[in-house]
Amino acid sequence: MSTTRAAPASSSRRAAPERGRSGGDDRRLSWRNRLYRFDMRYMPYLMIAPFFLLFVVFGLFPLLFNAVVSLRNYRLDDPTLPYWAGVENFSRLLGDEDFWNALYNTFGIFLLSSVPQLLLALVVAALLNRKLRAQTWWRVGVLLPYVTPIVASTMVFSVFFSRDFGMANWVLGLFGLGGPDDPIDWRADKLHSWIAIATMVNWKWIGYNALLYLAAMQSIPRDVYEAAAIDGAGPWKQLWRITVPMIQPVVLFTVILSTIGGLQLFTEPMLFDPNAQAATGGPNGEWQTIAQLIYKVGWKDLNLGYAAAMSWALFLIILIVAGVNYVVTNRLSGGRK
């Protein structure tokens, strides 16, 4: 903000000697003057222009144009339909069983992934927040899942969660669950497929969120802990009573982030399906998410108008859920009531 004070001072200082020097090289001076004024006045706009141009054309415009498309009959396979559809796409949405099923699945997977994800991230962050040997390598290590393409990891987990010879069933068998005689079919019903997909999401994001929490934890002033130690609070109690309330803004941030990301889940449910191209999320839509349904409606059924309407519905849902989650987390983590 100090530029506000500095800039006018410099321009007047700069202009003074130029005015005094007026003589034979008047024309050259005024040319330089003009260049200078152009540089001062318009260069900033030229510098931000590429960002705004590209962002408006490929980011903002599609988002707004989506609203127009959602009010139209936009079928790639049938261009003869009347141009406008009115609110038809939206009223169809309300009675569409596929949509409500996908919404149900999306919420189910979202709950199973976001809650354990953020709680485990807190624990991992608390572990990383000790004085560690080879500190950097532990932090880099928890980012392995973050850099791994979801496409690649989903393929691995798809094999882990196969019914016969799957690693997941084998491990559960060691604990006397399921076992080779009575294997769990992870793709047969909602709950099991949700758990499998949620496991992939958790694997991917725990380390990333842990680093966000760790950053916030390290900026907590140490005298807070001094006071806690006098009160005799152990490490576990310190984590929940002091650390979590102190890093509350970051907790809220991660809740919002995982809401926005979790409700748009696409790659994991797509590729968990051996018949991925159909985008049905299981033979009876056991784990079809909304993002997947939008893809199916738009590019398999070729009904872009309806897919656009669904996108707007999803946008609205994300807004509402993010708002609710914000309020709930704010209360739970000890914020203002």
Binding site: P62, F65, V69
Partner: peptide, 20 residues
């Protein structure tokens, strides 16, 4: 404006992006 657009999931404009 930049800060506000940080939180907009532009995946939601994907249908229109395809048309564009």
């Amino acid at each position: 404006f930049v800060v506000l657009t940080l939180t907009v999931p532009n995946q939601l404009g994907i249908v229109a992006l395809y048309i564009v």
